[in-house]
Design a binder for these strands. Structure first.
Lengths: 200, 200
DNA sequence: TAGCAAGTTGACCTGTGGGTCATTTTCTGG
DNA sequence: CCAGAAAATGACCCACAGGTCAACTTGCTA
């Protein structure tokens, strides 16, 4: 899959990391419209260097998104060993919201969702979430009509909800995660109108 | 407040409406980055005309957002007369999600939230929602620790959640509205971690 | 340490978007 | 029906963004 490409030269590797970090900061501050020139300046590098590492701005965005998805996947896999499946699912949602709170890159998702590498990593993440949900359901921690895809879609909701406020308290999302998770619990569940969406 | 400005000439009034409609369509299709030139073309009007009606692109966006907020406010006020406060709140959330589903303009909100007219309309909407929530809480239809601001923040969540899917079924949001509304119900509610946010 | 491929630089190109304005067209009150 | 005000037009301006490339610099390897 990864053909034997010789490793990056030391300075190039360093610049690549600097660029990813600078780009992430810049995107958080300015949104998708952050300019490549500004990103380069922030990384202390010329604009041409950006395009040596990432052919287009979209490719740069995909690299950032891919990194985050991979990190989340690792968290989900680790939690699959947990003794309490319900707590594990809640913990995963908490960690996911927490990282997303620190730097909201949701808006980058749309740009990068055509990238094949991103799709691959994303599918692994979805599979892990699916496993977490299956275990939680089997343990009776969530209602039977909730699927993995439901949870996938709901992951970003708490942060998004809190983000509607101009200057939200840094952990306000916990309040909305609690409300939404209560909606996933079996107690007092009302029947759901539409069937869960299938795999995308 | 509104000084006696003579009414628009007939053609100008017509063009204004054409522009608002065209702009809304264009924004839905292309996002915020839809260009003024394209909007003008779609309205069958020259670019200069756009700027005669709206000094800047932001002002045009504010006009669209303001219109939608006003329509929602009217819905909320009408529902305040309903006999069943719990059903009224659910109905409001349903209507809100439904209109937002038909044309998602959430991304315009950020642009327009500095506009004084928009702020005024928005505050009226928030007040109406607050009243709906108070009535529902008093009737025991939702848990006691939910505030009006909570619901304000949660309004867009169902559509947003369904929107994470590339091509969501047109009323998938109903599923997530049901889940979230279950989280608002008193049955099986777990204590909420953070206090509700105050007025913005 | 020398040679060269890999990496960097920054001036430059091109497209595009918001916004302006002198000129022309159109509406309307008298 | 006409005069003048209101509105529409579209060529034009400028800023800025993504992307290119020939010339230059630097890390690596033999």
């Amino acid at each position: 899959m990864t053909r034997p490409v010789r490793p990056l030269r030391a300075d190039a590797a360093r610049n690549r990391e600097l660029l990813l970090a600078a780009a992430e900061d810049e995107f958080v501050e300015r949104g998708v419209s952050a300019s490549v020139a500004d990103i380069a300046r922030r990384a202390g590098v010329a604009k041409g260097t950006v395009f040596r590492h990432f052919a287009t701005k979209e490719e740069l965005i995909a690299a950032i998104v891919g990194g985050h998805l991979a990190a989340l996947t690792a968290v989900a896999r680790r939690l699959l060993d947990s003794a309490d499946p319900g707590a594990a699912l809640l913990e995963f949602l908490t960690v996911a919201a927490d990282t997303r709170q620190q730097h909201d890159l949701t808006f980058l998702q749309t740009v990068s969702d055509g990238d094949s590498t991103v799709i691959e990593i994303r599918d692994q993440l979805y599979a892990s979430i699916g496993a977490l949900v299956d275990r939680a359901r089997a343990a009776g921690a969530i209602r039977p009509d909730i699927t993995g895809m439901d949870v996938v879609l709901l992951v970003c909701a708490p942060v998004h909800v809190a983000g509607n406020l101009p200057d939200p308290a840094p952990d306000l999302w916990r309040r909305y995660l609690a409300i939404i998770f209560d909606g996933l619990r079996p107690e007092g569940a009302s029947p759901l109108p539409r069937p869960a969406p299938s795999w995308p």
